[in-house]
């Protein structure tokens, strides 16, 4: 039960090199809000901790070279992401999802890379990132690769990252022209609770008012965020029907059960919150003033 060594690499390459050397026995630490708990409760006993805090270039927020996306460095905190003006305008549902995580103390420390790679099912940002088709840039000994958030999250606390890879940034595409979006977090108990259900929705309407595109991602109801492409496809070309979508998603999902709600209850909440999120997203389509994040 010896204590882990602590590495402070200054470049991504150095970090990857340490991870590679330890072959799964090392643990990356970013904001540390999750890792500290895992260590305290002895859920993990790594031989080494690899802190990313001195690694250069992981804290930037900016437009990608092509200008079609926002790049969030892995060490950008939830608080920074939530209030970043560019992210707020380019992908408001993502900013909203970061804004409703936990509490200010957590948001001041927790990072964009951390919340994705922790892969906790009861989380907010992953659903929003999944809805907007965000990808992560993973860096390993062989260089960088792009992993869509969809492919990154595999199961409870399980990701597609190799032991010797880190996430260096998350690339968030801009919300399509004219589209509206929303992320709604529903806590069934205290306002301080993690989500019982979280719904991310993106809606685009055709000039005739019919649905040109709808994307719905459900968080906290299964091991990973749930997206149902068939339902999204079926909605296109028809008048947008939030309640109908709510019913359809409620039928389609197979929710888990925890202290925040039974499977039955979560299914009902999917019904309600899909409708509400789609409605909120449609409201924002017109380019009117953005309502504050709801919860």
């Amino acid at each position: 039960m010896s204590q882990p060594l602590v590495f402070f690499p200054t470049t991504v390459a150095e970090a990857v090199e340490v991870l590679d050397r330890y072959g799964g026995e090392a643990k990356v630490v970013a904001g540390g809000t999750a890792v500290s708990l895992m260590l305290q409760h002895r859920l993990i006993q790594p031989a080494a901790l690899v802190s990313l805090q001195r690694v250069d270039g992981l804290r930037e927020v900016g437009r990608t070279e092509e200008g079609t996306a926002v790049r969030l460095g892995a060490l950008v905190t939830h608080a920074e992401a939530a209030r970043h003006p560019f992210l707020r305008s380019a992908a408001p549902l993502v900013a909203d999802a970061f804004a409703v995580v936990g509490n200010p103390q957590v948001r001041a420390a927790a990072t964009v890379g951390g919340v994705l790679t922790e892969a906790d099912y009861a989380s907010d940002p992953p659903a929003a990132l999944r809805a907007i088709d965000a990808v992560v840039i993973a860096q390993g000994p062989a260089g960088a690769r792009i992993i869509p958030v969809y492919d990154l999250l595999l199961g409870f606390y399980e990701t597609a990252l190799a032991d010797n890879e880190i996430v260096s940034s998350v690339v968030v595409p801009l919300l399509p022209e004219g589209a509206g979006s929303a992320y709604l977090k529903y806590s069934s108990r205290s306002s301080e609770d993690r989500p019982c259900v979280g719904v991310a929705a993106v809606v685009r309407q055709a000039p005739d008012g019919s649905c040109a595109e709808v994307r719905v991602v459900l968080g906290a109801i299964a091991a990973v965020p749930v997206r149902v492409p068939e339902l999204e496809a079926a909605a296109v070309g028809r008048p947008l029907d939030p309640a109908g979508l709510g019913d359809a998603y409620a039928e389609a999902v197979d929710p888990l059960e925890d202290v925040r709600g039974s499977a039955w209850y979560r299914r009902e909440m999917v019904r309600v919150w899909v409708a509400r999120a789609v409605t909120a997203a449609r409201h924002r389509c017109t380019g009117g003033p953005q309502p504050p994040p709801a919860g």
Binding site: S2, L5, F8, T11, E14, V18, E25, A47, R54
Partner: peptide, 26 residues
């Protein structure tokens, strides 16, 4: 955990703090 890792390779991975026998670092 394995002895191999107790002493990190020279210079690799930036700064490193290695716990003493008591598991502590300054």
């Amino acid at each position: 955990m394995t002895a191999l890792h107790e002493v990190p390779a020279e210079g690799g991975g930036g700064d490193v703090k290695v716990p003493d026998a008591d598991g502590r670092v300054p």
